[in-house]
Write a protein that binds this DNA or RNA. Structure first.
Length: 170
DNA sequence: ACTGAACTTAAAA
DNA sequence: TTTTAAGTTCAGT
């Protein structure tokens, strides 16, 4: 839910994987969501809108779905109004290299609250910028951890980076 | 204002 | 192997 009242402009970006959803405010990319049945119909396709950032986002998405590395700078995101602790976690998350994973514990430590591992999981779960804030690179110390959109997506996104996430069953 | 759950973890019982 | 306690946020009551 929005924590501030800037106007939000929503678009879809159609790919072979489905229609992604990108939401912008004047401060930057506010949300970025995986294709899902919940993606509203009738959103305009992102083309020349949103200036250089819009172009940048489309290009980066295309690259990543192609298995190439590309990243958006931290300044591209509008995370104002999100909890401080979450932003620290996301910041640490953004630093995980392409094709590698870290644990929730690693992130908690990086955020300065080494015991807040569960809160780190919470922060991952409320990641508003899927893919570019790479919560799919965060796994549990034993298992694969969770993923809001379903573990199948987590595995796919990691597979694009050449990382094989084995799903263990208990 | 409380309580419990959430994409957890490590250590004790 | 099961239980517990740890930090942070949010939804529900």
């Amino acid at each position: 839910m929005p924590k501030h009242n800037l106007e939000r402009r929503r678009y879809r970006i159609t790919t072979p994987w489905g229609a992604w959803q990108a939401v912008f405010t004047e401060r930057g990319l506010y949300e970025f969501k995986l294709p899902s049945a919940r993606t509203p119909d009738g959103l305009p396709e992102l083309r020349g809108q949103e200036g250089p950032l819009g172009v940048r986002v489309r290009k980066a998405l295309r690259a990543r779905l192609d298995g190439r590395r590309d990243r958006l700078p931290w300044e591209a995101f509008d995370l104002a109004g999100r909890p401080y602790f979450h932003r620290r976690i996301w910041r640490a998350m953004q630093r995980i290299p392409f094709g590698e994973v870290r644990t929730y514990g690693d992130l908690a430590r990086a955020a300065g609250s080494p015991l807040a591992v569960r809160a780190a999981g919470q922060a991952c779960g409320s990641n508003p910028i899927v893919l570019f804030l790479p919560c799919h690179r965060v796994v549990a110390s034993k298992g694969p951890g969770g993923f809001g959109a379903g573990l199948a997506w987590k595995r796919k996104l990691l597979a694009l980076e050449g990382y094989d996430l084995r799903i263990k069953r208990g």
